[in-house]
């Protein structure tokens, strides 16, 4: 090997070590810079993706479009009411917690967001949304979507990339773990996705259930609220089957949310107490109440 090659190799190794020693705030700055450059292309890509999806669907007649629009408007109004209802339920939950002196009174607020990039990573199930530190989004903020009369959990904020962008780690990822309980039961387990989540509709796994538990297919799974990361009673999915071992039982769960068609999401903003830790840890400015918050 020539002397020049050796010099370049040693320089490469030195630079590589230097880069791997970057602190999270330095990495955050680099990623924010990259996001500023690539965001216009991400937006264009998302629009193109939407156009291709629309082309793939059957063409509709004007009458069908009109009917669909009317139905969508009705659905939108219903969803607005449901968001308000959800907010009330969560506020009530917080008040009960306050009574039990577990938490200080902290009104919940949601921020509406839109998906701008899908599955950017090879191995992690993630989305990029168009809300970030300027809207008060912080690391570990839960992300939900209305599902009929309930709210379905989509995932949590993995990283706030910039003032108007954040990375969502989906529930289907193995590293997004939620404390969950069965419908009409106090039995709890840990729900997580599959490694790589390679299938189109990956199943979730509810582990560490008591081995004596009885769970029929179709039984709904909700978040338990333990750990205080995710609010209680967010719909996670329904039981497909149950496998009991000598020590515990594991339920295979079909997710409630269709992760392929996510467009509009809601981020639950952190409460006063919860705000400080993740925001400071992520190097994100203190969240402020955004103008886009959905409040009752």
């Amino acid at each position: 090997m020539s002397r020049l090659n050796i010099i370049f190799l040693l320089t490469f190794v030195g630079l590589l070590i230097w880069v791997t020693l970057f602190q999270p705030d330095s990495i955050g700055k680099i990623q924010r810079g990259a996001m500023v450059v690539t965001r216009p292309f991400m937006g264009a890509s998302n629009e193109l993706d939407g156009a291709v999806r629309a082309l793939a669907n059957e063409p509709l007649s004007p009458a069908q479009v009109k009917a669909k629009l009317a139905a969508a408007e009705q659905e939108r109004d219903r969803l607005r009411l449901e968001v308000i209802q959800l907010d009330e339920i969560l506020s009530e939950n917080n008040q009960l917690r306050n009574a039990l002196q577990y938490l200080e009174k902290s009104p919940l607020s949601l921020v509406a967001s839109r998906v701008i990039s899908r599955k950017p990573s090879n191995w992690y199930n993630t989305l990029v949304i168009d809300k970030g530190s300027d809207e008060g989004v912080a690391v570990d903020s839960p992300v939900i979507v209305p599902l009929g009369e309930e709210a379905g959990l989509v995932g949590k904020i993995s990283e706030v990339i910039g003032p108007h962008s954040a990375l969502v780690l989906l529930l289907t990822d193995e590293m997004c773990q939620v404390s969950a309980k069965l419908q009409n039961s106090q039995e709890q387990g840990i729900l997580s996705g599959e490694r790589g989540a390679l299938r189109t509709l990956p199943n979730l796994h509810l582990r560490y259930l008591p081995k004596e538990i009885v769970a029929t297919p179709g039984l709904k799974i909700f978040s338990s609220g333990m750990g205080e990361l995710f609010p209680a009673n967010l719909l996670l999915g329904e039981v497909v089957n149950l496998r009991a071992s000598v020590i515990d039982a594991e339920a295979v769960v079909k997710p409630a949310v269709n992760f392929d068609n996510l467009v509009d999401l809601f981020v639950i903003l952190p409460t006063k107490d919860a705000k400080a830790l993740p925001a400071d840890a992520a190097g994100v400015p203190d969240p402020v109440t955004p103008s886009t918050s959905v409040k009752p």
């Binding site: 010099i7 370049f8 990495i27 990623q31 996001m35």
Partner: peptide
């Protein structure tokens, strides 16, 4: 050549991680 390959490897990898790195 080898030195140029290493240079391209460094800045291509750095740009890739700047865009696609997920802090898990």
């Amino acid at each position: 050549p080898f030195p140029a390959m290493l240079t391209f490897a460094f800045f291509t990898g750095l740009l890739w991680d700047a865009r696609y790195f997920v802090p898990i």
